[in-house]
Design a binder for these strands. Structure first.
Length: 571
RNA sequence: GGGCCCGUAGCUCAAUGGACAGAGCAACGGCCUUCUAAGUCGUAGGCUGAGGGUUCGAAUCCCUCCGGGCCCGCCA
């Protein structure tokens, strides 16, 4: 709320300076208000004079002076304004304005930090979308957290968000899965059935076969192969998808839509898209296959789109799939893909562009892969070889909170190593505990309030149920001017940052900023806690600090909520 | 070979083109008759891979080089 207000004041001042002739009439750049690193120089600062210097043709400090002269800010909001450095304007907030922040936070409650950038525009975020051929592995954990947190951020920014999972249930992969199950099924009855070339070797494949044995005995041995494979495929798909849903649920991820690739084929959407491409002269035949002229859209070579055996490639369905999403009324589509799918971006976007879609409406967020490290040794994961650590294993080992926080902490475009050994043994050193501990400490104080001679009279019993201890009237009447300690001021500044963090993290698709912020807020609280006692004999001070402390809990809870990590009341 | 991503403290990572580049872990030294020590304070640690450029200002943008990851399939 401070930045937005300061921006407004600055814009008005600059316009006033132009009207008064103190500044030449040049276009105003977008006004930026920053927190100087470590708040060393000021609470807030703007580089507006520096940005204006060139077009205005005046020294920055002179411009700064003209703007400062024209500034009209109530003294109860900003205590001091100064010109510094090369031409920055520095602002020092009046304590009263900072105290107002607490009233603002309580009145916003769980919506504190929200913005209305989206204006209810509809966004589809598609993530995880792992092939339904086996358990989710660790990479899907990173994908899931990036997508889920991004969806949370966009919702907080006022977008109407739909979370979607695309099920690749149509291609060769699920066929190979069915054949793999069939192999184990026959083996159980001592019969030979060759293992498919691209088969799946994990232990779970044998388990699936055994479940069929248990249910149907040897009934399938004598049935026609096609019928058997169809039945095995459907059984395996159902089981695997159910297992995925369980794991994702445990991971705190829930989808609004599970979209079937096969449905696209059954509805003829794939054929329609291919026909449309053909009509535009973008397909041609060569070596028995049909090729897509993807070089027309920035690809480095043309690609096969229909194999010589008549089966379309994976990305052929991806084109109508994204058309389908647009037809469902989404203005923006965001896909979260592993970096190994990089090559598909040009194909899918090219296909869409060919059909007249403005491809700026499709944004593909690529994240680098997760490598697993064990005792310093890097492990490569391959599902086909049956070598991977599942997401379910990870959840068992480190828990949902640590896993989510860990995946969220890293910038998506940077590869991350997951140290299995460390993750298993770590509980104290994990950064998530630092943040959660701050929350638990606050809850502990609020509980303790009920036993405190001064505190008892101040708070509502709702504290015990984890609710807010104060109503808005109590906060309006409280004297917050006693919050003057350096650590209290620092804490207030930290609280003020959440809206900005949500906006930047959401707009730039950088969920890790939430983790950085959570840590900073927790740190500000821990420092305050060590230096200031909340519950004391001073009734006014106790009340003010309780209000501050409960506001920190609210903001921590909100931040952790966006990350999808729990906010425990005890640890 | 071509395309994309990355290179920041011993290790893992932060850092809206802004002022003296910050945390955690690891190392060393302090702080618990007081609301949770899973905390806190201090010390030490850096030519932001190298070199050019753009800019009033570059870890951040551009170019070259070095090093690493991913992709370049009628797999997904």
């Amino acid at each position: 709320m401070f930045r937005a207000a300061l921006r407004q004041y600055l814009e008005e001042a600059a316009k006033r300076a132009v009207t008064d002739g103190a500044l030449p009439d040049v276009p105003l750049p977008s006004v930026e208000v920053d927190v100087p690193r470590g708040r060393r120089h000021a609470d807030y600062a703007t580089n507006l004079p520096l940005a204006l210097a060139r077009t205005a043709g005046r020294p920055p400090r002179e411009i700064a002076q003209a703007i400062v002269d024209a500034l009209e800010i109530p003294p109860q909001q900003v205590a001091r304004v100064e010109i510094a450095g090369a031409g920055f304007i520095n602002f020092f907030l009046a304590p009263a304005w900072l105290h107002d922040l607490l009233r603002h936070i309580y009145s916003a409650g769980d919506t504190y930090g929200n913005r209305d950038l989206g204006r209810r525009r509809r966004v589809n975020v598609e993530y995880v979308s792992a092939n339904p051929t086996g358990p989710l592995h660790i990479g899907s954990g990173r994908n899931g957290v990036i997508g889920d947190v991004l969806a949370n951020l966009l919702a907080a920014l006022g977008y109407d968000v739909v979370r979607e999972y695309y099920i690749n249930d149509a291609g060769l992969l699920v066929h190979a899965l069915a054949q793999s199950v069939e192999h184990h099924y026959f083996a159980h009855f001592g019969q030979e059935k060759p293992f498919p070339e691209d088969g799946y070797r994990g232990e779970y494949v044998r388990d699936l076969a055994m479940q069929i044995v248990q249910r149907d005995g040897n009934a399938w041995l004598a049935r026609p192969e096609e019928e058997r494979l169809t039945a095995f495929r459907e059984f395996a798909l159902g089981e695997i998808l159910a297992e995925m849903r369980r794991t994702l649920e445990e991971f705190g991820i829930r989808f609004d839509v599970w979209f079937s690739e096969r449905a696209l084929y059954e509805q003829g959407a794939v054929d329609r898209a291919l026909t449309a491409l053909r009509e535009r002269g973008l397909l041609y035949e060569q070596d028995g296959a049909v090729w897509f002229r993807s070089t027309s859209f920035g690809d480095d070579k043309d690609r096969v789109i229909i194999r010589s055996n008549g089966r379309p490639m994976y990305y052929a369905a991806d084109i109508p799939y994204h058309l389908n999403k647009l037809e469902r009324g989404f203005e923006l589509l965001i896909d979260v893909w592993g970096v190994d799918h990089f090559g598909d971006v040009a194909r899918v976007k090219g296909g869409l562009a060919a059909l007249g879609v403005d491809t700026s409406r499709l944004e593909i967020l690529l994240y680098q892969h997760v490598r697993l490290r064990n005792e310093g040794e890097l492990l490569r994961m391959s599902r086909r070889r049956g070598e991977f650590v599942t997401l379910a294993d990870l959840l068992d080992a480190v828990g949902r909170d640590a896993a989510r926080y860990f995946f969220c902490m890293y910038t998506p475009s940077v590869p991350m190593d997951f140290d299995w050994q460390l993750a298993r043994e770590t509980s104290q050193d994990n950064p998530v505990y630092y943040v959660q501990y701050a929350h638990a400490r606050i809850s502990s104080i609020l509980r303790e309030t009920l036993n405190h001679p001064v505190g008892r009279a101040l708070v509502a019993p709702a504290v015990l149920a984890g609710g807010q201890p104060f109503d808005l009237a109590a906060i309006r009447d409280a004297d917050l001017s006693v919050l003057t300690h350096e650590t209290e001021i620092a804490l207030l500044h930290a609280l003020a940052e959440l809206p900005e963090v949500i906006e930047i993290a959401g707009r730039r698709r950088e969920p890790q900023r939430l983790c950085t912020y959570a840590r900073e807020l927790a740190e500000a609280f821990h420092v305050f806690y060590t230096q200031c006692r909340v519950l004391s004999d001073d009734r006014r001070l106790t009340m003010a600090r309780l209000i501050l402390t409960a506001a920190v809990r609210l903001v921590l809870r909100r931040t952790l909520g966006l990350i999808g990590v729990s906010a425990p009341d005890r640890m």
